[in-house]
Design a protein around this nucleic acid. Structure first.
Lengths: 342, 342
DNA sequence: TTGTAGGCGTTATCAT
DNA sequence: ATGATAACGCCTACAA
């Protein structure tokens, strides 16, 4: 209930506060008997060091903040973030750090909150989920020299500590394999235009087409929110616009792909016989729908772990500035694309 | 970069540190000109009050902890926690509190970590997700008078501040409606035996049977982990054990239900014509599968909001001890149960 | 209206 | 091996 302090322990153990402090840090210059004695008293009194007092004198609070750059509810609606949090939490726990979550209902307040957290010294650094992180936040962070790590990448900034997967390459590779399977009229169902991941994935799509000698047709590209409903709607539009001359829809996210799957179905067509669908992220639901959704799997939890580790290293080791870590992805072949070779 | 303190501001503004402090708290006994002058300097110097120093003197850190055990979160799968965090974050933000996440890989370390958090005064209170929370944690919390709120309920403790839905009633009500629809051979696919939610949901199942004059047949009850795979397997076992004399499977969780759905399908039977399936939670995937999964929807985010609000009230108002809040649930009728009345 | 001094709980630097 | 003392950055009586 009432805080037991180092002084209480000192008085009871008939030593000075500094001695108690040294016992806490298990200093080598304290006799065993004293340690014994003090520890007994600490137990009896139920003493626990006050983390805040400690932080104040050490100028270290041993905690980091996680910033999710969309209004949080939207952000968390995607399983992506859950996995991310798990990964980050695993690392922080291992390194004896605490994890604080920032969230807000608008993008601006979010940025402000995140900055406040570091400026008020409540956290020692930030992990940013870079979906459409404005340059501003990063600029400030860089200028004021606050430790941070990006998950994803920023268009405006390079040479910034970050953990990411190569979205361009992942889509390109998948596309090449799909084209090898005989697909030639491939549409691309993208997420919001201003998301860097979407831009990158679209670029991978383009590059693959070009390399394969296929035309890039802008009318086969659609943009939507990352949601099932948007996927459903945009896929329909896409089918109408293209007068059904599509044999595959490459989706920038599984939720979109799940919507597209349903769209194909409601048009009386079959997946994968008539139209193939492929997604991104390997959402749990991807293996539950029928046909199973072929998708590009990202080891999200692993990325979270790495990001937190890197941030903590940056914080603790002043000679380390962080680095760029690219995590490999993997295609999970299920039944939403044809399996036959050309 | 280097911390700007109240002293720096005081020196620059040619006032005393206490004056600056008073300006920060917008004290009414400071002249407007002084406030103006000091604020200008604060801006110029980029001053931000140090939250930790503040916490130390105020004995208030304005932050709460969310305890989600890794084992638990495995079991409950993603969407539940995700929604929970959203709700909690919404409230903490509104009340100017910070949110800390604890997680651990074992149940014991988890409990230890959570207790440490409050004992070290890093958080002012805890929100516990009570899936199989041991009495120990709660006992300690109660004994040492640390503010906390349960989401869910504890078997050993009553009269504890908590936010929950009435699982017994929810299942019972659903059962009664299903029985009215003509179902009479209803199996129950439960989650882990030691989860209070499972025990409660099972009890609702029993009570409904009894009230309807139907027999409770233990061989129609199965236990599994909360996962798709476990649902698939247990549903199969159930069908074999019961020699197909089942017309409905009531599942304690959507993931189990999704597994059961698939199990029915792979046996060459049809949902809902041959066997009905109902789940719990209204997981996103529930609306994506075909047929759509009928399920009991819990307003999880709302529960999170209420829990955080209650905790903060308990912390700030010493006359308020918290209460028991029961949030109503709702059945989402989709196509995994027959719609025809008897 | 403003300044001075003491303290929040801890650690680190001196002494002894 | 141990103790006294001064910070850490802020707040708040108490003075003036």
């Amino acid at each position: 209930m009432d805080q037991v302090t180092i002084k209480d322990v000192a008085r009871e153990a008939e030593v000075s506060p500094s001695t108690v402090s040294r016992v806490i840090s298990d200093s080598s210059q304290i006799s065993c008997e004293t340690k014994e004695k003090v520890r007994t008293v600490m137990d009896r009194l139920g003493y626990h060091p006050n983390a805040i007092a400690r932080s104040l004198v050490n100028q270290r609070c041993n905690s980091i903040g996680l910033v999710m750059s969309r209004p949080t509810d939207r952000a968390l609606a995607n399983p992506f973030f859950t996995d991310m949090i798990q990964g980050i939490a695993a690392s922080t726990q291992q390194e004896n750090f605490s994890l604080m979550l920032t969230s807000a209902d608008s993008y601006e307040s979010e940025t402000r909150e995140a900055l406040n957290l570091v400026k008020k010294r409540q956290v020692e650094g930030l992990i940013l989920m870079a979906s459409r992180i404005s340059g501003d936040l990063i600029n400030t962070l860089v200028r004021e020299n606050y430790p941070f790590v990006l998950v994803g990448r920023s268009r405006e900034h390079s040479d910034i500590p970050r953990v990411d997967n190569n979205n361009i390459r992942a889509v390109k590779d998948a596309m090449i394999k799909l084209i090898a399977k005989g697909y030639s009229n491939i549409a691309f169902l993208s997420g919001p235009k201003d998301f860097v991941v979407c831009q990158d994935r679209l670029q991978g799509y383009r590059e693959a087409l070009v390399e394969a000698g296929l035309a890039y047709r802008p009318e086969l590209v659609s943009y939507a929110e990352f949601s099932y409903e948007a996927g459903l709607k945009e896929a329909h539009d896409l089918f109408i616009r293209s007068r059904r001359q599509i044999d595959l829809v490459f989706c920038a996210d599984d939720l979109l792909a799940l919507g597209a799957l349903r769209a194909v179905e409601t048009r009386g067509l079959k997946v994968p016989e008539d139209i193939g669908v492929i997604g991104f992220n390997d959402t749990p639901a991807a293996s539950l729908v029928n046909p199973g959704l072929t998708t590009v799997r990202i080891p999200i939890k692993e990325m979270g772990k790495r990001a937190a580790q890197m941030l903590i290293s940056v914080i603790e080791d002043h000679n380390y500035q962080g680095e760029e870590v690219i995590i490999p992805t993997e295609i999970i072949w299920r039944n939403s694309v044809r399996d036959d070779q050309l």
